[in-house]
Every structure is written in structure tokens, then in C-alpha cells.
Design a binder for these strands. Structure first.
Length: 481
RNA sequence: GUCCCCGUCGUCUAGGGGUCUAGGACACCGGGUUUUCAUCCCGGCAACAGGGGUUCGAAUCCCCUCGGGGAUGCCA
């Protein structure tokens, strides 16, 4: 068994494509098969090597490993369509000489005109077949005019075709309504996707084509090409496309669609992989969080839902939080580091052990790695300027009282080794419970919400606590006696 | 328009003629733990698109309607 993921390098890796890649990868691994990465870059205008590289990087980040591809020769290369033009040419010559394809000299403008013809509903236009049987003379005349022809595939009339689809089941088509003779080679000599995809699949010995169902209606065209060339037909499985909340194909306006952005926003590859891999079906026991191996053992093309899922950003976020909480601490700390740095902290100067302790507390508050940026100040800032909530509590009588008590206390009676337990248990004030704790929290952390004080205090350290207490004393505790 | 695919809680889904007063998860709401918040635990709300068949019996099978998506490119 050989499968392939065949992106066109016209931009970043979209989560929808990532899902296709993941499904291919999982099915391949499950069956001990070969997975091929093929770059479909025949759209010269839009393809770029940067895009190709970013797609490969994103796939690797997701943990998808391909066995053959532009960077890994497996004997079936080249793996970029732009490097296979000679191969396609021989097939085109054959189709042409066998009259299964023909040159079409209609210009784009003429085609546009034909579409406007009154008897054609604009949307129901089918190429008339005008150039189907040009005489040698007519051809020469067009050539003399300097027209560059396209090559069209001659679609036979009224033949019914059944695609045996691994997800959709048997899907029937009739050649009379697949849109007429389609172009297989552009006027600049570059062949188009619908034509060469089947050649590559055959030459690369692809046995199973697993792709989005936006390709389903193209499949009969590809099968027609295969048959006229005597090429083998792979088995097909067309999965549904991911939709946005408005049920339109997922796009940028719905939210983040690029894998790269998910990464930079602090999503873990494991979580994105898990979410995307489980979209469209469910594990037998209903589990949601699964290792790739577990998904692999349970996933099956026939289990994939036939209706299109709506991308649930909230659920992905929830899943990411789950992964952050269960991740191995050492590795998680590494993942957090760039996000801490990005928030403006000299994280490299922080003692590793200390950092891990901080992470082990803050991870509970993070759904995204980037969430740590607005929390870690509690531990690393010298002063935590009270936010609005903290400010209002510190302005109350209780707040003022606590600020004073803490100030007196830290000036004399406590030191670095006992401060955290003392601060909590032996504060010289009659206040207790919430009325003691909330102001104290506000003084130390500058906010009313956050980690448990008895855990946070030792990590914040005596010096910082002292500074923060002094700061709040100056700001709230002084003044009116 | 035409062709193709698809309709179970708001969302992802389980279910494949009786075991369905339709199960799980996210979200939401309530409660517990946490002297805060988050985490964690417990509970609740919430769906078979509509209409016809078939059948003793339909969420499950068939048809129609409606709704959604895709294709219809010298894009992939």
C-alpha cells in the first residue's frame, strides 16, 4: 500500500490540508504502508519554494513523517510536478496522436463570449467542442495567427462511471455532465492538475488516494484519463471538508487556519494533531485524548463521517489545555521558554529548576503556551502594580490595614527562611480569612486571582515580597493614620 | 442552473429496525474542592430537519420537500 499527500505550495499549510495529511499518515502507519509527499506546483504563478518549505516544516512539526518526497528519494521521483514535465509530455503526445486529445485554439476571450451566449445559462456552460475536429488547414491558419493552443481531453459521451469511494461508497457519474472536454495542457505548455495527478499516482504506484471531497467531482475526469492511457486506477477515499461556524468552507475570516499560526500562538503539535485526527469520527470508548498510536489503531476510513464538521476552536483550545497540563514538565518548560521570552522576560537568566517550579504552578492557568506571558510576572517582576481589582481592594480599610501590618512585619520579624509561612500565619493583625488573604494577595501579586499563596510565595522570594509590600505600603498604607 | 455529497443536542459525535424515557465530549448553567481564580470532581440543560411510505415496530430502510456543502477554472 502506498498513499500520498500532495499539497500545492501556494501558501501556508492550512488546517484542512493538515487533516488530510494526518489521515493519510495514520492510515499509512496503520497499514505499514509508504507515505509520499508530492509537491503539485504546476501553477507557476502561485507556487513558491518558501511555501513548499513552510509546508514541510509544518508537517514535520505535526509529527508527520513521509517516506518519500522532494527531500527523500524513494526511486519514484522527482517528487515535484514541475520537474516531471518531460514525463507528462510523452503522455500528451500519445493522447494527441491517438486522437484522444486535441489542440484547442479558442482564446480566453472567445471562451468568455461563448459563455455569454443566450442559450447557455452562464453557470451551465460546457465547452462546445468547437476545436474537436479542426482540419489541418484551420490549424495552420490559427498557428499563423500566432495562437498558442491548449490541449483538450476528448470526453466520451454518455458513459456512466462509478467511483468506489472508501468513505462515500459508490458514487455514480455520467460523462455527459462532467463539463465537456477539459483542458489538460495550458497554452504555455504546462499541464494541469486534473490530468497529471492520475499519471503521477500511477507512476508513483499510489494504491490509495485519500483527499478532500472537493476533488470528488474531478475524479471521473481523472479516471477517464487513466483509462485512455491504460494506467491503473487507485482506490479512492474522499473525506469531507472542514467548515467554519457559518458552514462555509473554513477560511481565514473564521479564525486561524494556518498551522504555523497555531504553533506561534502556543498550541502544542500533539493537541492540534489529536484534534484534527479525531475530527469526523469518535473512538469506540468515546475517549477524546488519544496518543497517535491509539488513534492509529482505531481510525478507519469507513468510520469517517460523511458530513462536514465545523471547526470548533473552543474544543481545540480545551484540548490544548489538557495537553499542557499532562505534558512532561521538563519538555513543557522548554516549550514555554520562547513564549516567556516573547513576553519580554530574560528567561535565560532564570534558574532552570526555579523555572520548572513556576511552570508547574502556572500550567493550570494556561490553555495556550502564550497564556504564560501575562501570568509569569507574578514570579519574575520586581513589583506587581495592582490591577483595577487589586487596587480597589487595597483602598478599603482592610486593605490599608493589611498593607501596614505586612510592612511592619517584614521590616523586623521575618526573614528569608520563614517569611512565607509567617506571612500567612503570623501576620500581626486581627484580620483573618478572606479579609486578610485577599489584600495580601493583592499586595504580593497585584491581582485578586491567581495561584495559591502558600505555593507561590516561596517561588516569588523574600526580596520581591519585601519590595512589593513596601511599594504597597507607600501607595496605600501610609497617609491617613 | 446542472452534477455530486450530506442532514442526531449550539458544536464534534455514538447509534445501522425493538436493548433509545437517544449515550459521550466541548461550550453553557448549577454544586463541591480551592479562604481567590484556574485546575480537579459531581450534577443539569440540550438533538433524531419536515412530510410521506415500508414494517407489529423506524433516529436507523425507501421516496419527496427543505436546508447545507462541493464541483462546474488555461487553480489545486
Amino acid at each position: 500500500m502506498r498513499v500520498r499527500f500532495a499539497p500545492s505550495p501556494t501558501g501556508f499549510l492550512h488546517v484542512g490540508n493538515a487533516r488530510t495529511a494526518i489521515i493519510n499518515y495514520l492510515i499509512a502507519k496503520k497499514n505499514n504502508a509508504i507515505m509520499i509527499l508530492r509537491i503539485e506546483d504546476t501553477d507557476r504563478e502561485r507556487s513558491s519554494t518558501e511555501s513548499e518549505q513552510s509546508i514541510m516544516r509544518d508537517l514535520a512539526w505535526l509529527g508527520i513523517k513521509w517516506d518519500e518526497g522532494p527531500d527523500r528519494d524513494g526511486g519514484y521521483g522527482p517528487y515535484r510536478q514541475s520537474e516531471r514535465l518531460d514525463i507528462y509530455r510523452t503522455y500528451t503526445d500519445r493522447l494527441l496522436s491517438e486522437k484522444k486529445a486535441y489542440y484547442c485554439y479558442c482564446t480566453r476571450e472567445e471562451l468568455e463570449e461563448m459563455k455569454k451566449a443566450p442559450d447557455q445559462g452562464a453557470e451551465s456552460y460546457i465547452y462546445s467542442g468547437k476545436c474537436r475536429s479542426l482540419t489541418e488547414k484551420q490549424r495552420e491558419d490559427f498557428e499563423r495567427e500566432g495562437r498558442k493552443p491548449t490541449v483538450r481531453f476528448r470526453v466520451p459521451d454518455n458513459i456512466s462511471l462509478t467511483v468506489q469511494d472508501g468513505i462515500k461508497g459508490a458514487v455514480q457519474f455520467n460523462t455527459s455532465n462532467i463539463g465537456g472536454d477539459f483542458i489538460i495542457v495550458r497554452s504555455d505548455g504546462i499541464p494541469v492538475f486534473n490530468y497529471i495527478v492520475i499519471i503521477d499516482d500511477a507512476l508513483m504506484k499510489i494504491t490509495h488516494v485519500i483527499r478532500g471531497d472537493d476533488h470528488l467531482s474531478n475524479t471521473p475526469k481523472q479516471i477517464l484519463v487513466a483509462r485512455s492511457l491504460g494506467l491503473p486506477e487507485p482506490e479512492y477515499a474522499h473525506h469531507t471538508l472542514i467548515l467554519g461556524p457559518d458552514r462555509a468552507k473554513l477560511s481565514k475570516r473564521h479564525g486561524i487556519t494556518s498551522v504555523e499560526t497555531y504553533r506561534s500562538q502556543g498550541y502544542l503539535s500533539e493537541a492540534l494533531f489529536n484534534y484534527l485526527a479525531m475530527l469526523g469520527w469518535a473512538a469506540e470508548g468515546g475517549e477524546e485524548i488519544l496518543q497517535p498510536e491509539q488513534i492509529m489503531s482505531q481510525i478507519d476510513l469507513s468510520k469517517l463521517s460523511k458530513n462536514s464538521p465545523i471547526f470548533d476552536f473552543q474544543k481545540l483550545k480545551w484540548m490544548n489545555g489538557i495537553y499542557i497540563r499532562k505534558y512532561e514538565l521538563d519538555a513543557l518548560t522548554d516549550l514555554f521558554i520562547p513564549h516567556i521570552a516573547r513576553a519580554g522576560y530574560a528567561v535565560e537568566t532564570v534558574d532552570r529548576r526555579h523555572l520548572e517550579n513556576i511552570v508547574s504552578i502556572l500550567r493550570k492557568y494556561c490553555d495556550l503556551l502564550s497564556d504564560i506571558g501575562r501570568l509569569i510576572g507574578i514570579f519574575l517582576d520586581e513589583i506587581c502594580t495592582p490591577d483595577e481589582e487589586a487596587d480597589s481592594i487595597l483602598k478599603t480599610d482592610e486593605g490599608i490595614q493589611v498593607a501596614r501590618a505586612a510592612y511592619q512585619f517584614i521590616q523586623s520579624e521575618i526573614n528569608e527562611t520563614n517569611f512565607f509561612s509567617s506571612l500567612i500565619t503570623r501576620m500581626p493583625t486581627s484580620l483573618k480569612g478572606k479579609s486578610l488573604f485577599m489584600p495580601l494577595r493583592a499586595i504580593i501579586t497585584g491581582r485578586q486571582k491567581g495561584p495559591e499563596l502558600d505555593q507561590a510565595l516561596p517561588l516569588i522570594g523574600f526580596d520581591r515580597c519585601k519590595k512589593r509590600i513596601e511599594y504597597c505600603y507607600e501607595r496605600y498604607g501610609k497617609g491617613i493614620p
